[in-house]
């Protein structure tokens, strides 16, 4: 065992080693700061141009009128906004039940099979959305077009593709959120003789309600901006497609015909040489991001409410 070393002075001159290490410290930490500065600068530039170009092109007719091919400036993209909402609705019909129920299964089940499901949920989550688009084309658009020439591209196909994208996201977040509900709460309910589904329905799900809603909102926010899977499924449209029901008393959107979507419209206009169209693409981008932002902020509020309940 060594004897304590001779006392050095705290205030005296630092040894060369310490000076070098302190210099290295300053240099490396500055580099990190530089990296952060660069990242924030570039990301800030993205946001800056988006807002400046988008807001300068934003006007009311965007929300009230479909595209106008004669007087381009007067045109809007209401059919795209409407189409995106329709697609989100169809996607939810497929993605939410599968995602939430599957997430519940992953919470309840244990063992090898459950972890295999979890693994493949991640795999499905990592599949590029354009591949899902091709899948939807091959599974829905193509067979329909074979059976009824001239049809095929439809809101159903697009909603199907987006719904598939939703399933793994919702499944994972649902499971993770439900896992946060204390196990004791479940045990308490089961201990009273409640069945498993009753426990889930009346105890676990209500406790995790905010979190589950958050997961849904974030999944919707994610698919609202998807373009690639829509290229081969909805085709895009410049009109409202509606048809009469109830003997002509009401008009409902036609879902088995091509439909438009905001991200697709932005893409098409970005490829247009007309500067007015390009301006509308920027404005559309602001609308799309606002929609996503609203969903994300709603998600945040849903969680906050939940956390307060638990406290």
């Amino acid at each position: 065992m060594s004897v304590a070393p001779p006392h050095s002075s705290l205030l005296g001159k630092q040894s060369g080693n310490v000076a070098r290490r302190k210099a290295q410290n300053v240099v490396m930490l500055s580099l990190c700061m530089l990296a952060a500065g660069l990242a924030i600068l570039v990301l800030g530039l993205v946001l800056f141009f988006l807002l400046s170009k988008g807001f300068s092109s934003l006007h009311l007719s965007l929300f009230t009128r479909p595209p106008d091919n004669i007087d381009i400036k007067k045109g809007g993209m209401i059919q795209s906004i409407f189409g995106t909402l329709v697609l989100l609705g169809i996607a939810s019909c497929l993605g939410l039940p599968l995602g939430i129920l599957g997430g519940i299964y992953q919470l309840e089940a244990k063992g090898k099979f459950a972890s295999t499901v979890r693994f493949f949920t991640d795999v499905l989550n990592g599949i590029p959305s354009i591949v899902i688009g091709i899948f939807a084309y091959a599974a829905i658009v193509y067979p329909v077009a074979q059976a009824h020439p001239g049809t095929g591209f439809s809101a159903y196909a697009g909603g199907f593709a987006l719904g598939i994208l939703m399933v793994p996201t919702v499944m994972r977040t649902t499971e993770e959120i439900l896992r946060l509900v204390p196990f004791a709460l479940r045990e308490a309910s089961l201990g009273l003789g409640a069945t498993r589904w009753r426990t889930m329905w009346s105890v676990v799900l209500p406790a995790a309600r905010g979190g589950v809603i958050t997961g849904i909102m974030l999944a919707l926010a994610r698919i609202a901006g998807e373009t690639a899977p829509l290229l081969f499924t909805i085709l895009g449209s410049e009109y409202f497609s509606t048809h009469a029901v109830l003997g002509g008393h009401a008009h409902v959107p036609t879902l088995n015909a091509p439909i438009d979507a905001l991200p697709l419209r932005i893409y098409n206009y970005s490829q247009d040489v007309n500067p007015d169209r390009q301006a509308q693409a920027w404005a559309g981008a602001v609308v799309l991001i606002s929609l996503i932002l609203v969903l994300s902020i709603a998600a945040r509020f849903a969680t906050r409410g939940n956390m307060q309940e638990e406290k």
Binding site: L10, L11, R21
Partner: peptide
Amino acid sequence: SLDGEDLYDKRVDVVDLRKR
């Protein structure tokens, strides 16, 4: 103070201090 030297003196380097 450690051995009579103020730990919170501006000139003190925490790296040196924590080594001791």
